[in-house]
Computed example of a mutant assay.
Amino acid sequence: MSRPQCSRCLRPTAHCLCPLIPSLDSRTRVLLLQHPSEVNHALNTARLAALGLNKAQLVVGEVFEDLPTLLNPPGYQARLLFPADDAQPLQAYAPGDQPLLLVVPDGTWRKARKLLHLNPLLAALPRVTLAEGAVSRYRLRKAPGPGALSTVEAIVQALQVLEAPTSFEPLLKPFEALIEGQIAAMGDEVFQRNHGDGRLG
Rank of each mutant, 00 (worst) to 15 (best):
L149M: 12
R141E: 08
L115H: 02
V152F: 12
L116I: 11
K114H: 14
T129H: 05
L101C: 09
T151H: 03
A158P: 00
L122M: 06
W109H: 05
L118K: 14
R139F: 05
R127V: 07
L140A: 01
V156Y: 02
P144L: 09
R139T: 12
G133S: 04
P126K: 00
A124I: 01
L115I: 07
P146S: 12
E132L: 10
A112Y: 00
P105Y: 05
V103S: 04
A143T: 13
V103E: 02
L125A: 09
I155W: 13
P99V: 11
N119W: 07
K111F: 00
L118M: 11
A148E: 08
L130D: 08
T108E: 03
K114G: 06
A158F: 05
L130F: 02
P99F: 06
L115F: 12
I155T: 07
H117A: 14
L130M: 07
P146T: 14
A134K: 10
L102S: 08
A134E: 14
E132K: 13
Y138M: 00
S150D: 06
R127S: 07
V128P: 00
P120F: 06
E153V: 07
L122A: 02
L121C: 01
L101Q: 03
E153N: 11
L115E: 02
W109N: 03
L122E: 10
A123C: 04
N119A: 10
G145Q: 07
Y138P: 03
V156S: 01
W109C: 07
S150F: 12
T108G: 02
V128W: 01
K111N: 15
K142Y: 11
R113D: 03
A131G: 10
N119S: 11
A154T: 08
K142E: 14
T108N: 04
L125S: 06
L101I: 13
L140K: 04
S136M: 04
Y138V: 03
R141Y: 13
A143K: 03
P126I: 06
V104W: 00
V152P: 05
G107N: 00
